[in-house]
Design a protein around this nucleic acid. Structure first.
Length: 193
DNA sequence: TCAGCGATTAACT
DNA sequence: GTTAATCGCTGAA
């Protein structure tokens, strides 16, 4: 079951970030399908969240994607090297987004291994947001794509995630965000301790 | 126009 | 634990 636009257009971004855990993220580029279970997300809550690119209502070429209505992708380049894949949420005019930090590969593993130029082991599964984009083949060209289209989409396979399987922590790599750096906006499924 | 920097990673010591 | 890689975005000039 593909997630409908209404799923993304809810106004509680943290709740959506929680619900995305356990869903399956698919990409289909050049007729190659790859997918993985979403295991880690971070909620970025718009103009009032200093960690969000659109903090304070910043509206630029890059951030304008986040102001769209929920249900599209937001991809950008970080440190000049790494692509980050986000899901835009909330209503039009509210720059909320959810960063997908980790997935567990399911379909098209050979394709993903080739993209990463490495063979997957238990340990180097797609850990980290840069890797998620790398193995799924996502780059800047895939910014602002409709998540109900045929290139990138998310499916619900009916598996329910239990609260006991989920860890909630502050977000990563945003120490500059002051107070907001302490928000409990990161959701991890079945963390390996 | 341009300097400074970042929602990071992998390969080092 | 430390660091190089590397480039688009941002904001100030």
């Amino acid at each position: 079951m593909r997630l409908p636009p209404e799923f993304y257009q809810h106004t509680n971004t943290k709740k959506i970030a929680r619900q995305l855990l356990g869903k399956i993220l698919y990409t289909r580029f050049n007729n190659q399908i790859t997918s993985g279970i979403i295991t880690e997300t971070e909620a970025y809550e718009g103009a009032n969240d200093k960690a969000c690119h659109a903090w304070g209502g910043r509206y630029t070429q890059r951030t304008k994607t986040m102001y769209e209505a929920g249900g599209i992708s937001y991809v950008y380049l970080c440190y000049g090297l790494h692509h980050m894949f986000n899901v835009v949420t909330h209503q039009y005019g509210q720059p909320h987004a959810i960063l997908v930090r980790s997935i567990k590969p399911v379909e098209g593993i050979p394709v993903m291994e080739k993209r990463k130029n490495a063979v997957f082991t238990q340990k180097n599964f797609a850990i980290g947001p840069g890797n998620v984009c790398k193995i799924l083949g996502i780059n800047l060209k895939h910014n602002a794509l409709d998540l109900t289209g045929t290139s990138i989409w998310i499916e619900d396979n009916g598996v329910k995630t239990k609260n006991s399987e989920i860890e909630i922590t502050p977000r990563i790599g945003i120490e500059y965000a002051g107070e907001d750096a302490r928000r409990m906006n990161r959701f991890v499924l079945n963390p390996v301790h």
